[in-house]
């Protein structure tokens, strides 16, 4: 949690997260054409940073449960944000590494929280600059509503209606000390990022 957070609700425990990821892995598997070679026609694209960890966990499940080899790409959409002129601070640019050609491939964009839809818009633009995917679907752990753009997820871990002053914190052991999902209120006037 951030220092200014007041926890309002513990939305998901570590066990809840595992269960929901199992279910979402099934939903991803359903979208993979069984007659095609998944490694060559399908790909998961994790958005920095927690989307990357979620994508890796899904990749593991698809390998263990379905025997499917699916590549994972890493995407940072910072360079495509629409608010460079509006912010006092510059968000840190993180690595982008898509180790496959996106053209003609079916992609699933993976992120932890869907909020305004602006990050997803940036991510879609970034993907389109890299080629022409056959399709792009969107998977998010939490859909907290309050969209500012016409963006809709295809696979959702859990829908959580929230208010503008609140934040949803998805914490994963790969990146954080804890694991789970929390609804918090923030003191700060933090700009709406995602």
């Amino acid at each position: 949690m951030e220092p200014t957070d007041h926890v309002k609700a513990h939305l998901m425990t570590a066990a809840d997260l595992q269960r929901v990821l199992d279910r979402m892995a099934r939903q991803v598997a359903e979208r993979i054409d069984p007659s095609a070679d998944a490694a060559a026609t399908f790909g998961l694209v994790g958005l920095q940073t927690r989307g990357v960890h979620l994508a890796r966990r899904l990749q593991q499940r698809l390998r263990d449960d379905d025997g499917l080899t699916v590549p994972v790409g890493i995407l940072d959409a910072t360079m495509y944000r629409d608010d460079v002129r509006l912010r006092r601070t510059r968000p840190q640019v993180k690595p982008t590494d898509i180790p496959f050609d996106v053209t003609g491939r079916h992609l699933v964009l993976v992120d932890d929280v869907l909020y305004t839809g602006r990050t997803s818009r940036s991510a879609l633009d970034a993907l389109m600059d890299m080629g022409r995917p056959a399709s792009v679907h969107m998977l998010v752990m939490i859909d907290r509503g309050l969209r500012e753009l016409p963006i809709a997820p295809d696979i959702v871990g859990r829908e959580v209606p929230t208010l503008p002053g609140e934040e949803v914190r998805v914490r994963l052991r790969e990146a954080d000390a804890q694991e789970g999902v929390w609804l918090v209120a923030t003191d700060g006037t933090g700009a709406r990022a995602g």
Binding site: T89, P91, Y115, R144, E167, V170, T186, A193
Partner: peptide
């Protein structure tokens, strides 16, 4: 990244 506000490393001084 969505809900972490601004990944706030301060910009240059």
């Amino acid at each position: 990244m969505p809900d972490t506000p601004a990944t706030a490393t301060p910009a240059l001084q």
